[in-house]
Design a protein around this nucleic acid. Structure first.
Lengths: 209, 209
DNA sequence: CCGATAAAGACCGACTGTCGGTCTATTTGT
DNA sequence: ACAAATAGACCGACAGTCGGTCTTTATCGG
């Protein structure tokens, strides 16, 4: 049974299917054949679009990060927002994984042994988000609400911490442990950025909803 | 050619060889056959000692972490040291990877795609070191040199940041970028732990040598 | 303007090489 | 003689390759 499609359509079909499988079963445990079977295409077709399994993973991660980066950029470039508002908005925009494409992934299992995927996401997120957040912090320094000699590095540390601690797959926290860490993280941010004690109270309240 | 050895000796031989290969070529790219060839043993011998490739990785990581934990514990239990001294000593004991067993690994290549190994090391390091460091922080709170409502969580964040940022394999920094991050990290610690501004100056100086 | 022809490229699935892991036979120490 | 240690032939699963087919679209002579 031979069904011909547009290049981009087929490519996205592979990407979407692979993403669902990678997230639910894990990258390593997902077979190329799993992907082929799920779509109903042959080996050759897959390799007509991607030259390796890893290239698919990279493409998926790039796609995910890209949407997050776009949101962050949009917020960061708003001239009417204060640095504090931007910071909160950007972080909140990240947290809920959103419905991604349509609705899939909502019920995704916490897949522990998925090291490649987690690591690549982490690195890409830090690389692409830190410059944006650094600018926001610098705006905050000019507004005299933040104070640090190392805005860039501080952002990196905070991003890494958040990505690792709050990503399922590294540690499996109980709900109350998660809450505790979220609260602690807000305090860490406040201190790391040299903000006035208690100035992140608002964010704290939002997080604890 | 058949050579019989003591159980522990053979086991360590496998561990040492595997560790060298995992670090230089990466875990995934290292074949069981690579290990066998390097030692000069057969498949059956390998599987007589370990039931999977991953079990070898876990054993290696446990061994590495164990030496770090032992050092940390030894320092932490010294009744004559202040919390600040302990904190510095423990961190410094981690930094130089030491000659591990004898001398190997000194010239280890920075292997970027080694996600499994990096992730497992990270998680194990945090799990085993954070309780020890948390106690040190609590001692510091009693000594009134630190102040935080979240000692445990703060330690976790700091450990994660340090492990990821300073581990080759996640990011590849230039020497001066590394220095910059080390400096920034000391400031982050100072602030995160609620220490008096400038009280970590000593540590800073030591790091910059 | 139309039908033949050729180029592009989407698609197929048998096949290959590699790798982690199993199994059974043999040797060695006690 | 018995258990522990060693050996290596063997297996199934998997990522990736290759030679080729089918469909669509552009081109061109009449």
């Amino acid at each position: 049974m031979r069904i011909v499609k547009e290049h981009e359509e087929r490519r996205n079909e592979i990407l979407n299917t692979a993403q669902t499988l990678f997230v639910t079963k894990g990258y390593t445990k997902t077979t190329i054949n799993d992907i082929l079977r799920a779509i109903g295409i042959a080996k050759g077709t897959f390799y007509h679009y991607f030259k390796s399994k890893e290239e698919v993973l990279d493409a998926i991660i790039e796609r995910i990060i890209q949407t997050d980066v776009a949101k962050a950029q949009h917020i960061a470039s708003d001239p009417k927002m204060s640095a504090m508002e931007k910071l909160f908005a950007i972080l909140l925009a990240q947290a809920p994984q959103q419905g991604d494409h349509k609705e899939q992934l909502i019920e995704h299992f916490h897949q522990p042994d998925n090291a490649e995927m987690h690591q690549k996401s982490l690195v890409q997120a830090v690389i692409h988000l830190s410059p944006i957040l650094t600018e926001v912090i610098q705006q905050g320094i000019e507004e005299n609400i933040f104070q640090t000699d190392y805005p860039q590095e501080t952002v990196e540390f905070l991003l890494v911490s958040a990505q690792v601690i709050f990503d399922d797959g590294f540690f499996q926290w109980q709900p109350e442990e998660m809450l505790q860490r979220a609260t602690a993280f807000v305090q860490l941010m406040e201190r790391a950025l040299g903000a006035k004690a208690g100035s992140f109270k608002k964010m704290q309240d939002i997080l604890l909803k």
